[in-house]
Nucleic acid binder design. Structure first.
Length: 197
DNA sequence: CGTGAGATCATC
DNA sequence: ATGATCTCACGA
């Protein structure tokens, strides 16, 4: 298990170090393939821009090492990892994972089918997006504020480092003014599970 | 393969 | 009114 101090480092560093690590959840192992960083104090794309604290985003103001999960577009959840100290609202959005183990559990969460019953398209769409991976991993707002070193949700290092990191703009934050262009989205180069190239 | 509309609701 | 998204139908 990765210790909590892992998250007590600069958000952009933590985000890149998360690539290739594995989320353990309900007997599912899911490798992190794509992330985005959100840095409240200076980031107009972030819910907590300019330290703006609301009922929804207050978890971001807590200490590093917990999950921030919120509802988006009325029907989907997004999983974030909170970084930095208390009252420094920063987080990392998990955008895509590859299911390594527990494929039947994940595919049942998502499609009510076993993995070997999935179509090619369903396999591709199993967990390659922030909303999709939350369904596959059975994460909802009930897990908001959950510790990232709990038995129900934690991270492991499986020693996978043999990849290049692509750094690019974040997705779907057209309203974020100058922050639109911040290169704070990171993904594993050439990985088939990346949501958008 | 790509495109576009509709779903659906907490938040501001 | 809007969104850190996804699905489906449609056309190529």
């Amino acid at each position: 298990m990765i210790e909590k101090a892992f998250f007590n480092r600069p958000t952009l560093k933590v985000a890149q170090d998360l690539l290739g690590k594995v989320i353990i959840r309900n007997n599912i192992k899911a490798m992190i393939v794509e992330v985005e960083s959100y840095i409240g104090p200076i980031d107009k794309g972030c819910h907590a821009y300019n330290f703006n604290k609301t009922k929804r985003n207050k978890v971001m103001f807590e200490r590093y090492g917990i999950a921030y999960i919120y509802l988006i577009y009325g029907m989907y959840n997004c999983l974030n990892f909170v970084t930095e100290e208390i009252n420094m609202p920063c987080a990392i959005l998990i955008r895509s994972v590859e299911i390594l183990e527990g494929k039947d559990i994940a595919s049942n969460n998502r499609y009510n089918l076993n993995y070997d019953q999935l179509s090619k398209k369903q396999i591709k769409n199993l967990s390659n997006g922030p909303g999709k991976l939350c369904i596959a991993l059975n994460l909802t707002r009930k897990q908001n504020k959950l510790s990232l070193i709990s038995k129900d949700l934690y991270i492991e290092d499986i020693g996978y480092t043999n990849f290049e990191i692509v750094k690019t703009k974040r997705v779907n934050i057209d309203y974020a003014k100058e922050a639109i262009d911040f290169p704070w989205r990171f993904y594993i180069k050439d990985h088939s599970c990346v949501s958008i190239k």
